[in-house]
Amino acid sequence: MKRVVLLMVMVFISVMSFAQDSSELMTQANAAVESKDFEKAIELFESVLAIPDHGQNVDNINAVLGQLRPAVAKTKASDAVDNKEYDKAIELYKAAIADYPDAGIEEQAGKMFYNEGIKSYKSEDFVEAANSFAIAQVEFNYEKAEKYKSASLKKAAEALVAEGKSSIDGVSVSEGNKAELKENLAKVYFSQGYEKYQEGAATIKDATDKVNAGSITTLDDEYKNAVAEGKKSFEQAIPFLKKALEIDPSNANASKVLAACEQSL
């Protein structure tokens, strides 16, 4: 009988010990939550659940863990974005979305990369801006980023043209943005060439209209100077049009305007 009583006392002491341990861990876990050390809090709450007969409210602990785990996952991913570790951030966000599909993580990820794009755009790093907007749009379905991505690529193309570049080689553009940047580059070169062509055509037309109206003749210096000025504009248009065709040989408009310029010289 004494042995049975002794065993019962030992079991009671053991249960009391587990309860004390879990109570202390709960206190530490709640303190970790208060200090926003959520990873430590998760570890402590999980330690409580691992204790047999811990005597704590399991539903409450699981409810708290249900908030802390996605919060920690979001923080790790956003920290990677802040550190410009974009590939790592995408991987972390994707994993978090899979683990916690109802935590709104996809929208946060889209906003994070969208905001990165805005910052890069404001600092005139248009290629980097386009890359960030593309991640927001393609990886996290953040539709608002699409038009800003396109605007960034146009600005990037204009900057390349200003530097006289007719290739995107060496440009740190993402794979998904390469085709659009190249297309924009050809468009900017064509636009500048076409603008010069229009200037030349307008100058010659104005002089021709005066001839037709009888105010001047083709022998007058005013007419001859206008024709010379128009041809100069055509000559200035040709390099731009050739670069447009170098980038995009299928550009029918560039071919047509180039032929018009060359024929007029």
Rank of each mutant, 00 (worst) to 15 (best):
E106Q: 15
E107C: 00
G110T: 02
F113L: 07
G117N: 05
G117H: 05
K119A: 15
K119L: 12
S120E: 09
S120D: 12
S120M: 11
S120F: 12
Y121D: 14
S123K: 13
S123V: 08
D125A: 11
D125S: 10
F126Y: 15
V127K: 00
F133C: 05
I135C: 07
I135D: 01
I135P: 06
Q137L: 08
V138P: 01
V138C: 00
N141L: 08
Y142R: 08
Y142I: 03
K144G: 00
K147H: 11
K147Q: 15
S150F: 02
A151I: 09
L153Y: 00
K154C: 08
K154T: 15
V161M: 05
G164H: 01
S166I: 00
S166T: 05
S167N: 08
I168Y: 03
I168T: 09
D169C: 00
V171L: 05
S172N: 15
S174T: 11
G176R: 13
N177E: 14
E180C: 01
K182D: 00
N184D: 04
K187S: 09
S191Y: 02
S191H: 07
G193V: 06
G193N: 06
G200Q: 10
A202D: 15
A202C: 01
T203Q: 10
I204D: 04
K205N: 13
D206Y: 11
A207H: 07
A207R: 09
D209V: 04
G214K: 03
I216E: 06
T218S: 11
E222K: 13
K224W: 10
A226G: 11
E229M: 08
G230L: 07
K231V: 06
K232L: 13
S233P: 00
P239S: 06
F240V: 08
F240Q: 11
